[in-house]
Write a protein that binds this DNA or RNA. Structure first.
Lengths: 257, 257
DNA sequence: CGTTTAATTGACATTATTCAACCCGGGTGG
DNA sequence: CCACCCGGGTTGAATAATGTCAATTAAACG
């Protein structure tokens, strides 16, 4: 852990992460300063977690929230008979455990997929949060809203799209989310996901992931390789999955283009 | 529409709905009064919507939120080729469009499944909401958190449970949510869902819903009939689906038992 | 009554899973 | 330097789960 109270240079990690967070939240424009201020005041330390380590386990208490500074985090649930479902993944600029100030425990596991650095934010729970830190409260509410929206879209994918549509949709989402934080290089998505991770995100078997990637590759739409996916034909990807980025609520994305 | 400003008797509909809402939110105990006060102050009118009518359509603006007083509301997405996925359903005491004060538009349809009465709440968007109405802000954040958690659980169901487990889990959830608002009579769930609705919630075909109900009925676990499902063996249902109500965050449910 | 809507059933097609084998590149230790 | 091993990744064949189509029944309603 690194004590942050003394390291608040203008481009300190916390400052950068806070701005990454704020950048997504244009619809709360008027609270921007308040958000940054709350984050800076309440951030207490920095935590480094190495790859494939648990961050919070199911039913464990976690009375604080984290702002992801770097790395990929999975939120998942393990079922009997070895099944696993990855519910969501958090990227830099995302808030982790955003519901932990509202509820006692989380019913999911949080795991570091890569090595991860987190900024720990210690805020009061319940009433005080809303009365004394409207900026942070807004950031949490916004994050919950966006997460909720992403999950709703994932429910649609898992419920009513076939494997090709699921994969195409997931790739479009990855591209959009990584673009939003400036982590896309050209048409290549760099990601720490192997095919088993894809399987557990899409709710299909590893082998089927492989076959589905092959279909995409045969049609020169996208190509999987270790640590990356090349998007050869984004238009087709979006078409296959009827992708519409509206659910991510990056209002500024629309403006940017 | 009924004007509410004059009809604030102690047991007025709005008062009852607000208490239903607050009752779920024990973890925000200290804000209880504030929540009720905000709801009462900001509630502007009451809307009645008849069965199978849209309330808000995809991509439509909706700059207010609603508190459900009576009836069932579906939040769903229609896909090409006639597919539909019901993402979630709202019951009395639930907040509708809880993200509409954060985002411009919703990317889902809201439809009244039964005739529905809603209390319309007109609150400021963005900054003002958090600075001037912490009670309502907390209620919204709490609702978003609970919804998010319910959706996460649904992702697990859709991704990694087979049809029997999916149905069993859905029935357990229905029982828990209806109990929470005092709408369970004995072991019977009264609901306005036909088998097609179940199909669109579970992400399977109507016919398969039928077959799955038959399996449950053959084993004397649950029985579907028009407008209701009888739970003959709740223990088995919970066992089949590994149901754990923690994700609903009705902390008081645990205490009550 | 006839008409409509939902539920039910069987036969068959499709999709996805499981199992088993094999490949391939990157360590690791002899 | 090579043999081995290991964690993915890839492939095919057999199987199971679920979907589609088509026809039938049942209940609900004017």
């Amino acid at each position: 852990m690194t004590d942050l109270s003394t390291t608040q240079r203008p481009d300190s990690p916390i400052e950068k992460a806070a701005h990454l967070l704020r950048r997504k939240m244009t619809s709360l424009g008027g609270l921007s300063d308040s958000i940054i201020r709350d984050v800076k005041t309440l951030a207490c330390d920095r935590i480094e977690i190495s790859a494939n380590r648990p961050i919070v386990k199911e039913n464990e208490r976690c009375p604080q929230i984290y702002l992801v500074e770097a790395g990929w985090v999975f939120r998942s649930r393990g079922l009997a008979s070895g099944r696993r479902q990855i519910v969501n993944y958090a990227l830099p600029g995302d808030i982790l455990c955003s519901d932990s100030l509202l509820f006692e425990t989380s019913s999911f596991d949080f795991t570091a997929r890569t090595s991860v650095s987190l900024i720990r934010i210690e805020a009061p729970q319940g009433p005080e949060l809303f009365e004394r830190h409207p900026g942070l409260a807004a950031a949490i509410a916004w994050t919950l809203g966006q997460e909720e929206s992403i999950l709703a879209e994932r429910v649609v994918s898992l419920g009513r799209r076939d494997s090709l549509e699921k994969l195409a949709h997931a790739l479009c989402e990855l591209e959009a989310r990584l673009s939003a934080i400036g982590q896309m290089r050209g048409r290549t998505i760099e990601l720490p996901l192997n095919q088993e991770d894809f399987a557990d995100i899409l709710g299909i078997s590893v082998i089927h992931v492989n076959r589905t990637f092959r279909r995409l590759s045969e049609e020169k739409i996208a190509e999987y390789r270790k640590g990356a996916v090349d998007l050869l034909d984004r238009a087709r990807l979006a078409e296959i999955s009827a992708f519409d980025a509206a659910y991510l609520h990056y209002d500024w994305v629309a403006l940017q283009r």
